[in-house]
Design a protein around this nucleic acid. Structure first.
Length: 816
RNA sequence: GCGGAUGUGGUGAAAUGGUAGACACGCCAGACUUAGGAUCUGGUGCCGCAAGGUGUGGAGGUUCAAGUCCUCUCAUCCGCACCA
């Protein structure tokens, strides 16, 4: 058979579409698999990263269908977001039109790759129906206090004119456009993700084994739990007087209570309320105020370059020694962690040390190393023996931490405290193309949530996108409404939501059956059956943002009573990037490969085969045009050699004993490939080795000419390969076997039985020869053969011992 | 600085402590062909005519046996990073 991918691929894609071949069953008594890859943003065209992502999930989905599972393999589009608006500014297109045109095109690309997605559950997160359910959840969360509004200093991207979550600030710049962010004070909506900080951290343990370690570590670091001591520092009387009696103390947090006697100054963040008060009331000189303002306004990158600060002329009382300690303002103290104030122990903290050096502040050593002398040219941050610490002298500093905390607690001047780096998730965006926050501002009632019956609060179509400000804010009528509570004139919230909100629950929405798609977001029964996601596949770039938010939503939905589990994704597979010429494919580098062009030239099966063959999924994949050719040539051979196969509807029964050596070898290779398939799909995911095994089997089949063995081989190999190269395999399987072979197969042990074994013979662990031994040969006989084979290396030596590894090798240990 | 990953032929890679380099790409030689950027056959880690030697970033160690386990170290990549 001539291999014509364009013909057979179109044929089977049409067949699958017409027969709705990949819709999951509503029979919830069947065993299920939920296979999901992270859905794409509809940017217009698929790139090779997408092809890799969806080829992986499709391969799992098709495998499990063959194994008799009810498989949910859905797809959607994460279709809100800034690029649609950017395109509107650039081309004058409407964000909606642009988005849905792109979706249409990308759906065609999906189909041309033969992905076995459920069509009936396809969604775009910008669909009004999706917005409706999402806004409902937002209202639930607001009622629970999990969504709130507060004034705060925010990351503002001056290019995109929107706020960004901390997670969306990369190296001080906007994660999308790389513009350095600035701080801006704004009223914003927040999700109370910190309420779940501890559970999000603790439940990472449940994911061990199913998630890559790297991702677990990244999440752990991001949540950033640390235990320590929080206590108040009392301002001395003079300082209280300076502050007009407005402040008498401030709160600090330390993870090193064992260094408490080493405190030689304290430092406040430039944004600290005491500092603000002093600026507002002109309690500082104009120069100092300028310095502090400069600290505040400097970008987070500049702030990290060099430590700077200034003394405030205030003093606090050390809680244990009662000595006076000066108060400084310092740029390295962060307002949004802990209380925005620190006790400084320069002898035992690198930052405090640098600062003390610069401003010539005293350095009191209170920990000495277990061995050797204390080096005062730098901070000693390790554990050691406490000194100059009154009653604590001589204690191991590590062990004494709890004792110091107890001491503070017994004096009622401090307490054990846990802090997290994780901050609440700011979700408002001053953009048009997003889901509106379902709130109304009423002069009488204040902030009022919409009635669920009024949802969705949909976006107006007639807007003008200029790139400046929020188009919803500028729309003539949209924001004017009646207060849902009192009915008087009111104003709609014009902020829309961060698009990470949509991707935080889309995997739940996919569980909804098409028949109640319109009426409810999902049902408990459907969720219970389909969740959790058995295999979740996507890029490592979502290790923190998306995966943390999705975990958070899952816990919230559980607490709202919608679902009954804690974690959404059982197994996470993070695929490596697709590279060309050693670099990530990108338009700016001009090293992209267009999937459509590859499909047109070689077909989807070639693209899929190459992508899975060139590297294991988690590793980077280097694009190689000639290796793609190689994949194509394999498919052609696979297709053409099918002429050796007899048509049959059952697997041939073969009398193994009567076969020639080549025939036996061919069968062995085929069944080895089958064994490997079971291992690869279930445990290892190293599809490259599976494909190699199938190639070996093909090579072995080609060494013999028994048509029964060809038939058995193709019966099994087309089944193993169907998840990878579905079009060709459906074609071959249909023509040859009436598709009866696309199912589970048993490994026949008889094909692995052999008469003779090839053993390696090594001398002192170095391989020297190979021998053929009969199965069942005695150890003595094997040793005799082995020693004879390596005689040359044994001359004038004494054999100390011999080690026989069954079916593998004989190692002769010699001396002299 | 902290955390993680990776390091094996000319290239992508394989090897679940037991014959390193499977399977491919590329390259070389041959066959077929009007032709070959098609197809088929054979070869291909390195040094060497060969016998043989040598070889998984480097140095040690454990073991009868190490790419694999342990210690140290170098390089590259990724993530986090003034979090008190």
């Amino acid at each position: 058979m001539n291999y014509s991918p364009s013909i057979i691929e179109a044929k089977w894609q049409k067949f699958w579409a017409e027969h709705k071949s990949f819709e999951p069953s509503e029979d919830f008594t069947q065993p299920k698999k939920y296979i999901l890859s992270m859905f794409p943003f509809p940017s217009g065209r698929l790139h090779m990263g997408h092809v890799r992502n969806y080829t992986l999930s499709d391969t799992f989905a098709r495998y499990y269908r063959q194994q008799g599972f009810n498989v949910l393999h859905p797809i959607g589009f994460d279709s809100f977001g800034m690029p649609a608006e950017n395109a509107a500014i650039k081309n004058g297109s409407h964000p909606k039109t642009w988005t849905y045109d792109n979706i249409d095109y990308m759906k065609k690309e999906f189909a041309s790759l033969g992905f076995s997605f459920s069509k009936e559950r396809e969604l775009a997160t910008s669909d009004e129906l999706y917005t409706k359910f999402e806004q409902g959840f937002i209202i639930d969360m607001y009622e629970r206090g999990l969504l709130y509004r507060k004034e705060g200093m925010l990351n503002w991207c001056p290019h995109d004119l929107t706020v960004l979550a901390n997670e969306q600030v990369v190296d001080g710049c906007c994660w999308r456009c790389d513009t350095p962010i600035v701080k801006k004070e704004m009223n914003q909506y927040y999700f109370k993700i910190t309420h779940y900080a501890d559970e999000l951290l603790e439940d990472l343990k449940k994911l061990e084994g199913g998630w890559p370690k790297q991702v677990l570590t990244m999440q752990e670091n991001w949540i950033g739990k640390s235990n320590g001591l929080a206590f108040d520092l009392l301002l001395d009387e003079a300082s209280q007087a300076t502050l007009g009696g407005q402040f008498d103390r401030f709160d600090v947090f330390t993870t090193r209570p064992d260094t408490i006697y080493g405190v030689s100054y304290t430092a406040l963040a430039p944004e600290h309320p005491i500092v603000s008060y002093m600026i507002e009331n002109a309690l500082l000189s104009a120069t100092v105020i300028e310095q502090i303002k400069a600290m505040k306004n400097s970008s987070s990158i500049d702030r990290q370059k060099e430590k700077s600060g200034v003394a405030l002329g205030l003093n606090v009382i050390h809680p244990l020694t009662h000595k006076t300690v000066p108060v400084w303002v310092a740029n390295f103290v962060l307002m949004d962690y802990g209380s925005g104030a620190v006790m400084a122990v320069p002898a035992h903290d690198d930052r405090d040390f640098d600062f003390a050096q610069k401003y010539d502040l005293p350095i009191h050593a209170v920990i000495k190393p277990l061995e050797g002398e204390l080096d005062l040219s730098k901070a000693y941050t390790d554990a050691g023996i406490m000194v100059n610490s009154q009653a604590f002298d001589g204690l191991n500093s590590k062990a004494a931490q709890a004792k110091v905390i107890e001491h503070f607690e017994s004096l009622k001047i401090g307490q054990k405290t846990t802090n997290y780096k994780l901050k609440d998730w700011g979700v408002s965006r001053q953009r048009y193309w997003g889901a509106p926050l379902p709130f109304v501002h009423c002069e009488e009632c204040g902030l009022v949530m919409e009635k669920k019956a009024n949802l969705p609060i949909a976006l107006p179509h007639d807007i003008e996108i200029t790139g400046e400000g929020n188009p919803l804010e500028k729309h003539p009528t949209w924001k004017h409404c009646k207060c849902p509570k009192c009915g008087k004139d009111a104003v709609r919230e014009t902020d829309t939501m961060d698009t990470f909100v949509e991707s935080s629950w889309y995997f739940l929405r996919f569980c909804a059956s098409p028949e109640n798609w319109e009426s409810q977001a999902f049902s408990a029964e459907q969720i219970q059956y389909w969740m959790g996601v058995d295999h979740y596949i996507g890029g490592i770039e979502h290790a923190i943002l998306h995966l943390l938010y999705a975990r958070f939503f899952t816990k919230v939905f559980r607490d709202l009573g919608y679902i009954e589990f804690d974690e959404p994704f059982e197994k996470l597979l993070t695929q490596g990037m697709v590279l060309k010429d050693g670099a990530k494919m990108s338009k700016s580098k001009g090293n992209t490969v267009d999937p459509d062009a590859i499909i047109e030239k070689y077909g989807a099966d070639t693209a899929r085969l190459f992508i899975l063959f060139a590297a294991p999924p988690t590793q980077e994949l280097e694009w190689n045009d000639s290796a793609v050719e190689g994949a194509f040539r394999f498919l052609r051979r696979f297709s053409e050699r099918s002429q050796n196969v007899n048509t049959t509807h059952v697997i041939p029964i073969i009398d193994h004993a009567s076969l020639t050596k080549e025939e036996k070898h061919a069968r062995k290779k085929v069944y080895e490939a089958l064994k490997r398939a079971q291992e690869v799909f279930v445990e290892r995911y190293t599809f490259n080795t599976l494909i190699a095994g199938v190639m070996e089997a093909m090579n072995a089949l080609n060494e013999q000419s028994n048509s029964e063995i060809w038939s058995e081989g193709y019966w099994i190999l087309t089944s193993i390969m169907e998840p990878i190269i579905p079009h060709l395999c459906w074609e071959l399987s249909t023509t040859l076997f009436g598709r009866a072979n696309l199912t589970q197969h048993c490994v026949l042990d008889e094909v692995f039985e052999v008469d003779t074994l090839v053993l390696g013979v090594s001398v002192n662990g170095k391989n020297r020869a190979t021998i053929d031994v009969a199965v069942g040969a005695s150890e003595d006989a094997m040793i005799a053969l082995a020693t004879a084979a390596v005689e040359k290396w044994l001359e004038d030596k004494t054999i100390v011992k011999t080690i026989i590894v069954p079916a593998k090798l004989v190692n002769i240990v010699i001396k002299g």
